[in-house]
Computed example of a mutant assay.
Amino acid sequence: MTATSESMGETRLDQGPQEVSDRLIASAARLSRNAMTEIDWDQPMDPDLYGCSPEWCTLYGTELWEEMPLEQRIELTRHESASVATNGIWFEMILQEMVIRDQYLGKYHTPEFQWSLIEIADEARHSLMFAKGSDKLVGTSYRPSKFVGLLGKGFMMFARGEVAYGGILVAEEVLDVLQRGCMSDPRVLPFVRTINEIHVLEESRHMKFAREEVRESMKNVGWIRRQISALIIAIAGFVIVSSLHSPDVYANTGLDRKRAMSAKKNNKHFHSMMRGSCVHLIEFLSSVGLLTRPAAFFYRRANLY
C-alpha cells in the first residue's frame, strides 16, 4: 500500500464512531490475544534481565543511577514496571466505569455499543495481566495516593464527552509510550515484553475509538466549553502521569526516597524521552482544539509537551 492510499484509507475509515466501531470489532476478532495462555507464569526469571529498558527508567542517566550497582538497577526497573502496570489498573477501572456509564441505556444493537463491551472486556483482561505480572515481578502492587484516588473518583463520576474520552486517550497514550519502548528489547524479561506487546496491540484499537469519540464530541463545541474541557483533560493527564511511578519504588529498592525523587524530577533524559514519544498525542489534541495555553502548561509540567 502506498503512502497516498494509506492516507486515503485513514480518511475513509474515520467516518464516525459507528463506522470505526465496526472495523474495530472485526480487528478484535482477528487479533485479540490472551496473556493467561501465552505466558508461562511459572517460568523462573532470569536475574540478569530488566523489568523495562534501562533508558526508560526514571533515574537513567542521573548521578544516582551511576552510583547504583547492576543488581539494584535491575531491581528498580522491575519495581517501576510493576508501578506503571498496577497504577494502570487503577485508571483502567476508571475507564471501564466511564465506558459502561456512557453506554447505559444506549442503543444496544449498534456497533458502538458492541465495541464498548469488547473494550471493557479487554481492559478487564489487561488488568488481570498487569496484576499477575506485578506479582511475578516484585510480589507487590502500587496505587496512587489517597488524594489522587479521590480525584479519580470525581473524574469517574463527572467526566462526560470529550473530557471522559480525552482523559482516557491521554492515559492510554502515555502507557503506550512507556510499554512500546520496552516490548522489543532483549534486555527485558520475556514475559514483560509479551505483556507490553499485548497491551500495545490492543490499546491501539482503544485509542482509535477514543480519538473518534473526542472528534465527535468536539463538533460545534463553543469557546468556553472548549477551554474548560481542555484544562480538565490536561490536569487529569498531569495527575495520571505523575502517579505512574510511585515514590515507594525507590524505598523498596534500597534508595533514599527524597534523593531519588529529586533526581527523577530533574532527569532531563527521561523528560526528553517522554516529550519525543508524545508528539502524536499533542498533535491530535491541537487538531481538535484541546491544546489551549492553560492546558499546555500542565502538559509541560508532565513533560509531555
Rank of each mutant, 00 (worst) to 15 (best):
L24F: 10
R275P: 02
T77E: 04
C52R: 10
K146F: 14
S83Y: 02
G276Q: 06
R101S: 13
G166M: 01
D48V: 00
K132M: 10
Y50C: 06
K208H: 11
F191G: 00
M68W: 05
S145M: 11
I240M: 15
S134H: 04
A210V: 09
Y165S: 04
E212D: 12
R33V: 01
I120N: 09
R193P: 05
M129A: 07
P111N: 12
L117M: 14
A251W: 03
N303V: 02
Y142G: 03
W115N: 12
R293G: 01
S141W: 05
V163G: 01
E67R: 15
L304N: 07
S141Y: 09
N252E: 15
S262G: 10
E202Q: 12
F298T: 06
S27C: 00
L231G: 00
V200P: 03
G9P: 02
F209R: 00
M156K: 15
K258D: 15
S53Y: 02
P144D: 01
L178A: 11
Q114C: 02
V99A: 07
S81C: 11
I118Q: 13
E197K: 08
T4N: 10
A251N: 08
M261V: 15
T4L: 14
L281P: 02
V84Y: 13
G222C: 08
S287T: 08
P44M: 08
V221I: 12
E162D: 15
D176P: 04
A234P: 04
M156G: 01
L49H: 03
R101L: 04
F113I: 02
S277K: 09
G9H: 13
A85C: 12
G149E: 14
T292S: 15
I195C: 07
